[in-house]
Amino acid sequence: MQTLFKPEKLSELIQSLSKSLFETHKDFRNIVFAGIQQGGAVLGEQITSELKLLVPGQNIDYGKLDITFYRDDIRKEILAPDTMHMPFDIENKTVILIDDVLFTGRTIKAALDTLLDYGRPAKVELCVLIDRKEHRQFPIQADYVGTTLQTKRTDKVKLIKDEVVLIPGEEG
């Protein structure tokens, strides 16, 4: 396991993501944030905390989305679900999905399926810390990207606590 980003670099990326979210929207009254479990939920908490500093006095809605029941490879391995916490209405709102790593695009597809069972948002945007662009399997792009990484298909990239780590793949 190798550390890709230490806490200082990570917090720099989070600040820059928060800044571009702020510059695009400025007003967050009709916007809700949903962090995808587990890495995206951790990141989402940090991004929304940063945003609160940029728009003092404004309430920022933040929820956690668990996609376990919507995975397209569910029969390969039955996983225990994580906590789902969406304590607000998403009908006609702009939802900003947050995830730590955008890889094949399958997680985001599952997250969109999950989201639509809560209502019909006006718009959905995607914000990710790391984009592993060359491995995409679905036509999904992020609106906000912290950084792009060149990786092997078999590598695993994860946000663990306050560091981003790479677990090298065995083959190729």
Binding site: T68, F69, D117, Y118
Partner: peptide, 22 residues
């Protein structure tokens, strides 16, 4: 494990669409 998974399904049953594709 069954009880904690059931708590997540109870949340599913409160949503506008009370169904998952699992």
């Amino acid at each position: 494990l069954i009880l904690s998974t059931a708590a997540q399904f109870k949340e599913v049953l409160q949503r506008p669409v009370k169904k998952v594709p699992s």
